[in-house]
């Protein structure tokens, strides 16, 4: 903990780098970056472990059990994301274990908010068939109508709901 944390990258540098990684992903794989698909697979796998039989007979999860539900490109990609972010945070002296919250909210309430927000996002990502990465970022890069409609909804709800819960972050 003696190392001085290095500053975040400038938004321009980070944006150019992210665009480069996204372009590389398209050229190599034929599709963009994603994230929520991994959590769908994780949910199917964990559901199968806890309630045997249900996930395999559920009409949404069943197709994921043709192979192991986690056996997918996006699972390896997310392993890479965690390792890459860990390497970045550690090498820049930015890794800290803790609960991140605004001053106006306790740690327990923050964890409940995180859990509830996660439920909304997990459900919403299945409704949209993708998330900020898969539809918002990757979809918009292909100039897909879906990408921009998604981002309009994302920012509209974000600003509205944020106005209601802003005390939790300030």
């Amino acid at each position: 903990m003696t190392t001085q944390p290095r500053p975040f990258w400038s938004p321009l540098v980070a944006g150019l780098a992210l665009g480069g990684v996204l372009l590389l992903t398209f050229l190599v794989t034929g599709h963009g970056l994603g994230a929520s698909g991994f959590f769908t697979r994780l949910a199917a796998w964990l559901a199968d472990l806890t309630v045997p039989g249900w996930a395999r007979s559920n009409s949404y999860f069943a197709p994921l059990f043709v192979d192991h539900p986690l056996a997918s490109w996006i699972s390896f990609e997310m392993v890479g994301v965690v390792v890459g972010a860990l390497a970045g945070a550690a090498s820049a002296g930015r890794f800290r274990i803790g609960i991140e919250r605004g001053a106006g909210i306790g740690g327990g309430a923050r964890l409940l908010n995180a859990l509830f927000g996660g439920v909304l996002v997990g459900f919403g990502a299945r409704v949209a068939q993708g998330c900020t990465s898969g539809i918002g970022l990757s979809g918009s890069a292909t100039l897909a109508l879906a990408g921009f409609v998604f981002l309009l909804g994302f920012f509209a709800a974000g600003f509205l709901v944020s106005a209601l819960v802003r005390r939790a972050w300030q």
Partner: peptide, 26 residues
């Protein structure tokens, strides 16, 4: 879905990809 994810992001603080980055940051 965009609305739900925007709402969940405002309350929970992350989206799917950035939550993995948050966890990797501790």
């Amino acid at each position: 879905g965009g609305l739900l994810i925007g709402a969940g992001f405002a309350i929970g603080g992350y989206c799917p990809g950035t939550s993995a980055v948050g966890l990797a940051s501790g």
